[in-house]
Design a protein around this nucleic acid. Structure first.
Lengths: 154, 154
DNA sequence: CCTCTGGATTTAGAAAGCGAACCCTTTCAG
DNA sequence: CTGAAAGGGTTCGCTTTCTAAATCCAGAGG
């Protein structure tokens, strides 16, 4: 049943594991919901707030963390006739999380969808069929999950 | 610079978004670190605890949530000469998070790796080249990130 | 019986989350 | 010129959650 052999410890101590580091940074309810909104194009403080309905204190704190970490860039926008305001846009670092959040969306569609069809799906530009998260080798060919092997350095 | 057009709201209200649901469930530091350890083969309460160094109260609470949600299965193991104990093994639902956590690992390798080579990499069974998380179409051909399009239902 | 071991619960103090109210700056309307 | 509005925050108390340490509990072995 369990494809994963028993281990008493993980092979990499969490304190120098990049997965653990990523989890420290973005493994937080509000942080992830902010990134979700940002990937859908939300940029402004009040838009985040009314989308997430989270305390403004939490929001401003998380935005600060994400800017400091380099996931978001704080820059100024100006609507004519209004005063200049900051907006928070995803950096390359932030945008590169998109495949992961899409993967998590599809995981949620499968396991948390409550039988309803997925409200959003993803396709390749110009074609119709759905795409999915998977693993590929250097040439871009899919590698099936049971063929994945982990290799420790050294 | 920003490839994502401005939006005031996300196209799917968070309360019936499967990504938001997934974030509610696993978007938590300890929960994700538990899943990380579980994907490396850790199964037992004390092993999780010494791996994560988290409060035992938190650990037992999180394990309960993950069991209730169906990500982990609680079953009994018995070492001869010892009393029977519960162990927490990943269900199919839990195992199917693996591509996502591997993708996050690789994201961390790129952005949080502090210049060091990745401590763990992934290959296809029997070959040597590294594999990576990506999107594929129905035929298993890679779809580049910039070619991904979201399609709303209805 | 007494102790050891793994899997938890209890307890009390620290930290973080929360909602409401307030502040600050610029712009527009009267 | 004065007042109100709008966006982007901070301040203030209160409540929840986290955390660490101690305790409990059941069965096995001596």
């Amino acid at each position: 049943m369990s494809q994963i052999p028993l281990a008493r410890r993980s092979p990499i101590p969490p304190e120098n594991c990049n997965l653990a580091r990523a989890i420290e940074l973005i493994g937080d309810r509000w942080t992830m919901l902010i990134l979700r909104a940002a990937l859908y194009g939300v940029r402004r403080f009040d838009d985040f707030q009314s989308e997430l309905k989270c305390p403004r204190t939490v929001l401003s704190g998380r935005l600060k963390v994400l800017v400091d970490a380099g996931l978001l860039t704080r820059r100024t926008y100006k609507v004519p006739g209004k005063r200049a305001r900051p907006e928070y846009v995803l950096s390359a670092m932030g945008i590169s999380l998109r495949p992961i959040l899409i993967g998590l969306t599809q995981w949620g569609d499968v396991w948390l969808g409550q039988g309803e069809p997925a409200p959003i799906s993803f396709t390749k530009a110009g074609s119709k069929g759905a795409i999915r998260a998977a693993f590929v080798d250097a040439e871009g060919r899919e590698v099936r999950p049971d063929q994945i092997r982990a290799v420790l350095r050294g």
